[in-house]
């Protein structure tokens, strides 16, 4: 088969990522296997070229784990990930090293994502030298160019991270990821730690770079407004599974999974009026070590029925690639349209 470059930059099929609880020496000697926590539990999706897929979900739902697995930082227990048609296997270090020039990550916490003992220039220079991005003699000039690309002045190169603000650090993290000229980026909550005005600067910068460099992006966040601003498509995770996926506009206008609807309703509005309503969703996110039977959202779902407790819901196609994993997805969508629908969102 002779195919041009596949349309999907990243394809994930039935991905499972597990963590093992640490074992004692006695357990090790007796060969007792540790308890397993499924942080990502059977997830499939693709990301098309030049697309930005937003990924939202509760804390602990497995977003970071998924993003890191895509880069081969965690090993897939089951399922497969391909990048530009090539499989990503965490255990194949050499294979990965070549691929990593094309895929990079920006981390959530600007305070721990830079080595405190290296200046900005050293951090960026190391990447350039190690991957032989440019001639040795041009490293200094290239560092200056990178800094400029992310809107920092070249004299920042001499600074240690401790002398930078959170927003500046996040820019350096972005420059480090861009240094190898990747075409796929995983952005793990890149603005969560920043205040709104710096956040707006970084989001604009990301948009510019995306258009300029033709990047494909997985954008992880828990703030819906930020995701809406950045993404073309959207995936919603709950407890290790994707519960809804589709075009961002479609999901924001017609969320069809009760959890997504809960998320939308729970977002605080910029309306200066003291709220007089109860919490949208009751109860806590269950532990991934004790996943509820049937639909894993049922203990908190306002629409839950007996079927939900007994059977895992199928993935319901709602047209145009919009899918929701709920027994009553269509009904949920109708209810949304009829009631809150256009009014609050």
């Amino acid at each position: 088969m002779t195919r041009a470059a596949p349309a999907a930059v990243v394809a994930v099929e039935d991905l499972v990522v597990e963590f093992r609880a640490s074992r004692s020496i006695a357990a090790l000697l007796r060969g007792i296997s540790a308890r397993r926590l499924r942080a990502v539990d059977g997830v499939s999706f693709t990301i098309a070229r030049h697309e930005t897929l937003g990924l939202v979900g509760e804390s602990g739902s497995g977003k970071t784990t998924l993003g890191r697995a895509l880069l081969g930082l965690y090993r897939a227990s089951e399922g497969r990930i391909t990048f530009e048609g090539a499989p990503i296997r965490a255990q194949k270090t050499r294979e990965l090293r070549a691929l990593r020039q094309h895929m990079q990550m920006v981390f959530q916490d600007p305070y721990s994502s830079l080595n405190p003992r290296m200046t900005v220039g050293q951090t960026l220079g190391e990447v350039l030298r190690f991957h032989a991005v440019c001639a040795k003699s041009e490293v200094v000039a290239e560092v200056a160019k990178l800094l400029e690309l992310v809107g920092l002045s070249a004299d920042m190169a001499a600074r240690y991270p401790s002398a930078l603000s959170g927003g500046q650090r996040q820019r350096v993290g972005l420059a480090r990821a861009l240094a190898v000229r990747p075409n796929f980026l995983v952005l793990d909550e890149p603005v969560a730690a920043l205040d709104v005005s710096i956040q707006a600067q970084i989001l604009n910068l990301l948009q510019d770079l995306r258009d300029e460099l033709g990047l494909t992006i997985l954008f992880i966040a828990h703030e819906l407004s930020v995701v809406r601003h950045m993404s073309t498509r959207l995936a919603v995770m709950y407890l290790g599974k994707i519960v809804e996926i589709g075009a961002a506009d479609a999901i924001f206008s017609a969320p069809s999974h009760p959890y997504t609807q809960g998320l939308m309703k729970a977002v605080p509005r910029l309306i200066p009026e003291r709220r007089h309503r109860e919490a949208v969703l009751k109860g806590d996110v269950p532990s991934p070590l004790a996943v509820p039977s049937g639909c894993r959202f049922h203990p908190r779902c306002p629409m839950a029925r007996d079927l939900c407790r007994a059977e895992t819901p199928p993935v319901v196609a709602l047209g145009d690639g919009h899918e929701a994993a709920c027994h009553f997805a269509e009904e949920a969508a109708r209810t949304w349209a009829a009631t809150s629908g256009g009014a609050t969102v």
Partner: peptide, 24 residues
């Protein structure tokens, strides 16, 4: 005013945010 302008909205999708220029 600058703070207010920086906030992205959930209700609609803006093309461009308006951050406060410069650094603190």
């Amino acid at each position: 005013v600058g703070l207010m302008n920086s906030i992205p909205s959930v209700e609609r999708r803006d093309d461009r945010l308006l951050p406060i220029p410069g650094q603190p």
